[in-house]
Amino acid sequence: MSGSLFDLTGQVAVVTGTSRGLGQYLARALARAGADLILTSRRKETLAPFAEEIRDLGRRAVELELDVRDAESITAMAAQAAESFGQVHILVNNAGCNVRKPAVDVTWEDWNLVLDTNLRGSFFVAQAMARLMIPHHYGRIINIGSVTSVFGYAGLGPYCASRGGVRQLTMSLADDWGRHGITVNCLAPGWFRTAQNSVLYENKEWVEYLVDRIPLKRPGAPDDLDGAVVFLASEASRYITGQTLLIDGGISTGAMRATMRPADADE
């Protein structure tokens, strides 16, 4: 397979939620593959250091303010993106949030915060970008889901609902926009340490519990997502749409042993 299938030179990618965390890793991977970037955050000033890093890679970078819970903010970002580069080829719908609580303690406001950000925000950002892509009959939309797009975990009711919704939304949009040359896929990370969940990884017992259930025996490292995001953004995935690609070390296999395994089984 030709390496050019993964070359993003000359393409423009919008990556939402790039002030920190996995959004920066995803954006960095696209830049290294050749893409110019539009970086977004609710506070534009937080993007300046990362934008300079992208420019140091030899790529163009534009910082734009975006609150995915605000319709006017989405519309304004899309207009500025079009003004900055003309055509947008790739969207990585990464902005998200979480509230960790037992289900009986989740408030109306908790639910709205998570669903409005992760699900409604993903839809309306995708819609705004699709309106820019349709006239060019080309686009790659990558919605960021989670292993919770296919699994449920206690204490994550709103989050699981939102990420399951992102998976279903991805399939619907793939069907809607395929005739316009736009592919829509869901990139679903498993357990990765991020700013949102770092406190969990300070608990040694919980980390051991988690790792025991991951067939590859470690949580995800941020650069484990690099190949997947470049693949879904590139020509290499041109006949793939409506799919959910799990990058989870295998935890979605079920992560439960049906028999006892001898301690020396791997030796």
Rank of each mutant, 00 (worst) to 15 (best):
L30M: 12
V88K: 05
V62N: 02
E63P: 10
R28S: 11
L64I: 12
R55K: 14
L66N: 07
D70A: 04
A71M: 10
G58I: 10
S41V: 01
L37E: 02
A82E: 13
L22M: 12
A95M: 06
N93R: 00
K101C: 10
D67G: 05
R20L: 14
F50H: 03
A27M: 08
E65P: 11
E52W: 02
A33C: 11
Q24K: 14
A48I: 12
V62E: 09
M77P: 13
A51C: 05
L47K: 01
G23L: 05
L57R: 06
E53Y: 04
S73C: 09
F50T: 04
Q80P: 13
L22Y: 09
R32Q: 15
D67F: 07
L37H: 03
D36H: 09
V99G: 04
Q87E: 10
A78L: 08
F85G: 04
A76V: 14
R28K: 12
R32I: 03
A95F: 05
A95E: 02
T46W: 02
R100V: 15
F85A: 03
R55H: 06
E83Q: 13
K101E: 14
R20N: 14
A27E: 09
D70T: 07
Q87G: 00
A61Y: 00
N94T: 05
G86E: 01
Q80A: 15
E52M: 09
S41C: 06
K44F: 06
N93F: 06
G21D: 09
L64Q: 11
Q24V: 10
L37P: 01
L22E: 02
G86H: 01
L22R: 07
L64F: 10
G96P: 03
A95C: 01
G58H: 13
E83C: 05
L47S: 02
R100H: 12
L22N: 02
L57M: 15
G23R: 07
E65L: 08
G34V: 12
T46P: 00
R32K: 13
G96C: 11
Q24C: 10
K44N: 09
N93E: 05
E83R: 12
I74A: 13
A71W: 11
S73E: 07
P49W: 02
Q87Y: 02
S84F: 07
F50C: 01
V92K: 13
A81T: 13
L30K: 00
V92T: 12
L30P: 04
R59W: 08
L57E: 14
R69W: 08
G96H: 09
L66W: 04
R43H: 15
I74Y: 11
A71C: 05
I54N: 01
M77D: 11
R60N: 08
V62M: 04
E65K: 13
H89A: 10
V88D: 07
R59G: 10
L39I: 00
S41I: 05
E63W: 01
V62P: 03
K44Q: 15
R100L: 12
L26Q: 09
A51G: 06
F85P: 08
A51Y: 00
T75E: 15
R55N: 10
A48L: 12
F85E: 01
L26R: 04
